[in-house]
Simulated assay, not measured.
Amino acid sequence: MVSEYRSLKDHVYDYIVKMIDMDMIGNEGKLSEQHICDALDVSRTPVREALIQLAADGYLENIPRRGFFIKRIDENSARNILEIMGPLEGRAALLACDQLSDEDIAQLQFLHGAMQLAIEKGLYTRYDELQHDFHSCFVDKCGNDRLIALIHQLNRSFMNREYTSVAPDELDRLLRKANDEHAEIVRLFEQRDGAALQRYICDTHWSIDNASSLAW
């Protein structure tokens, strides 16, 4: 098997994404080019290229004379993303429905239970990691590489969400609601009902009515 070639810029890109995911960006969300250069022992060129690519992909904001900052998601932006995400992931679920093994469905069940435990323990960063794994479990089995890449790219728009900006009671309600929807997704996969899965994920799980809860 021939390994996919990945440029230095790609490796820097992944490093920056990991920094954001792990909440390692301080100073009001500003990224330090020099810090990244020092950490990876690379020149400014691949760092600048990666930052520009992240800005083009919609994850960072390049503010003239100030630098690169994590891009916040407002309600309108969240609505726009949901209008695309729903149909795409619904289609992926339909394509994956007959491809998932019994072991894959058992993994979905496990991840749903783990997310519920994370909610109850207040481990919201862990919940985010688990829900990403949950969706990837079936998206990655849809058999359409371009569709998979598009969905993962859209998901990156919601990385590093600031849960502290949401009141604890409201946050608990929102996450429990989302995980109830995960339970329904598991049930529909168990029934191998691809058409119902496509409708549910598009019209309910990624409904544009959820836009306000995804803004941060």
Rank of each mutant, 00 (worst) to 15 (best):
E83M: 13
D180I: 03
C137N: 05
E170T: 15
M19R: 07
L82E: 02
N210Y: 06
N76W: 04
D145Q: 04
A211V: 07
F189H: 00
A178M: 01
C137G: 02
L40E: 07
E49D: 15
Q153T: 11
L108W: 05
D57A: 13
L130R: 00
D41I: 03
G90F: 06
A178I: 04
D169P: 00
I81G: 01
S212P: 00
C202S: 15
S212L: 03
E28S: 04
S101D: 02
H112P: 04
I25H: 03
R146P: 01
A149Q: 05
D41V: 08
G122F: 05
I208R: 00
D102Y: 02
S43V: 03
D21Q: 11
D21S: 10
N76S: 13
A56C: 10
G67T: 12
G143S: 10
N76K: 10
I81A: 08
D203S: 08
S207A: 12
K18T: 15
Q109G: 03
V17S: 00
L154Q: 12
D104N: 11
S43C: 01
V2W: 06
N27L: 01
S7N: 06
Y127C: 06
Y59N: 08
I119P: 06
N210Q: 09
H135K: 06
H205C: 15
Q191E: 14
G29A: 12
L174C: 10
L100F: 01
E61A: 13
G86V: 10
E129K: 02
I20C: 03
I148K: 11
C37E: 15
I119L: 05
R187D: 09
Y124P: 13
R91Y: 04
R187Q: 07
A106K: 06
G67E: 11
C142T: 11
D23A: 13
E4P: 05
A93F: 03
L95Q: 09
R79S: 03
Y15G: 09
Y13H: 14
V47R: 04
A183H: 04
V2M: 11
K18V: 14
H152F: 04
E103H: 03
Y59M: 14
D193E: 14
L100T: 01
D180K: 00
L171P: 06
R48I: 14
R146G: 07
L40V: 09
F134I: 08
R79L: 06
I73H: 01
C142S: 10
E129I: 13
H11F: 11
I201G: 05
L154H: 07
P87F: 03
Y124D: 14
S32I: 11
Q116S: 09
I81V: 14
R176I: 07
L171K: 02
A55E: 15
A56W: 05
R6G: 09
E83Y: 10
W206R: 05
H152T: 05
L108D: 02
L8R: 06
C142A: 10
E49R: 10
K18P: 08
K71I: 08
G194V: 05
